[in-house]
Computed example of a mutant assay.
Amino acid sequence: MIEALTKMELGLVELLRAAWIAGTLPILVASIPSSRLNSFHGALLGFAKRGKTMQSSSHGSFYTAAPLSLCINCIPEVLKFATGRVAEFIVKGRDRMQIIEFDWWEYVNPLTKLGLCQWIGAAIFIWGWIHQHRCHAILVIVTLCYDKLLGSLREHTEQTDEYVIPHGDWFEFVSSPHYLAEIVIYAGLLVASGGSDLTIWLLFGFVVANLVFAAAETQRWYLRKFDNYPRNRRTILPFVY
């Protein structure tokens, strides 16, 4: 049984790694500034449904494998526990199964044994989550104001595209701070993992490639739409890009 679980884990690890590589490479290719790749760039953008013009914050199909990638090292223990309980249920029946008692200290105690990487990673994760929440709130307010304005003008059969420039929090530095915050969140997870798992590195690489690609489209949309758009506002990395 243990040998079978080990083989299953290895197969799943290789599958996840292949999936992250397969998801990252097309984005990197589409990001190359070449006119020959314009059609491929447009097709990938439509598939990803990212960027301001798409009005979407969907993670895409690949993100469904993210929790699995982060918890890959725990899978054998989980499967071993689950199969053990199923076997016990089959042999003994429900009435004769051992009752599992939950000891809260048993779950809290491991927190006292966390290393420096785990605490730093948790702090980075929380920092990113707070700013992502704030930036999404700013976008929601901007979108609601825009929709309300459109509704009032439709009553007078007029048209407008007065979408305002978002301000506040990390919007003062980059055009896609919610994407930047998401990268920070995954960076926290990477640090907390200790940085020794290739699967998590590939996951992080996909996240960065995907969000930078989307942020570049968002930046182009803002620059086309607003003549007075802040020229010192970077795409996704403050003071860099």
Results as ranks from 00 to 15, higher is better:
Trp201His: 14
Met8Leu: 15
Asp103Val: 12
Gly188Met: 08
Met54Arg: 13
Ala187Trp: 08
Thr53Glu: 15
Leu139Asn: 04
Thr199Asp: 01
Cys145Phe: 04
Phe62Gly: 00
Thr160Lys: 02
Tyr107Met: 03
Ala48Cys: 09
Gly46Asn: 12
Glu162Lys: 13
Ala19Ile: 08
Tyr163Thr: 02
Gly23Cys: 03
Thr157Phe: 12
Arg220Leu: 05
Ile75His: 08
Ile124Tyr: 02
Ala65Ser: 15
Ala122Ile: 08
Cys135Lys: 07
Gly11Gln: 11
Trp221Phe: 03
Gln118Met: 02
Ile72Ser: 05
Glu172Leu: 06
Ile165Asn: 01
Trp104Met: 11
Phe204Gly: 04
Leu202Asn: 02
Ala30Leu: 03
Leu116Trp: 12
Lys7Ile: 13
Lys52Ser: 14
Tyr163Cys: 02
Glu14Cys: 01
Ile21Gln: 04
Gly23Ile: 00
Tyr179Ile: 10
Leu44Gln: 00
Gly93Thr: 10
Val240Cys: 05
Arg234Met: 06
Gly46Gln: 11
Ser35Tyr: 03
Ala65Leu: 15
Leu5Tyr: 09
Ala82Pro: 05
Gly195His: 01
Ala137Ile: 07
Trp119Phe: 09
Gly188Phe: 02
Ile185Thr: 06
Thr157Gln: 07
Leu149His: 11
Ile185Pro: 10
Phe40Pro: 01
Glu162Leu: 03
Leu144Gln: 14
Asn210Ile: 05
Ala87Tyr: 04
Cys71His: 11
Met54Lys: 15
Phe204Lys: 07
Pro238Thr: 05
Leu10Glu: 13
Leu189Thr: 04
Lys52Glu: 13
Tyr163Glu: 01
Phe102Arg: 13
Glu155His: 05
Ile72Thr: 12
Ala187Ile: 13
Ile2Ser: 11
Val208Asp: 11
Gly121His: 03
Cys135Asn: 12
Trp127Glu: 01
Asp227Phe: 09
Leu116Phe: 15
Phe47Ala: 05
Glu106Asp: 05
Asn109Lys: 12
Arg224Leu: 15
Gly195Asp: 07
Tyr222Arg: 05
Tyr107Arg: 00
Cys145Tyr: 11
Leu37Gly: 06
Leu144Asp: 15
Ala19Phe: 07
Asp147Ser: 05
Asn73Val: 13
Gln219Glu: 10
His167Pro: 08
Ile183Glu: 05
His41Thr: 10
Tyr179Phe: 15
Tyr222Lys: 05
Gly205Phe: 00
Tyr229Gly: 04
Leu5Ser: 13
Cys71Leu: 15
Ser56Ile: 04
His136Glu: 11
Lys148Phe: 01
Asp95Trp: 09
Asp95Tyr: 10
Gly168Met: 04
Ile141Pro: 01
Arg231Trp: 10
Gly84Ile: 02
Met97Pro: 08
Leu25Glu: 00
Ala209Gly: 00
Gln159Ser: 12
Phe206Cys: 00
Val191Cys: 02
Ala65Trp: 11
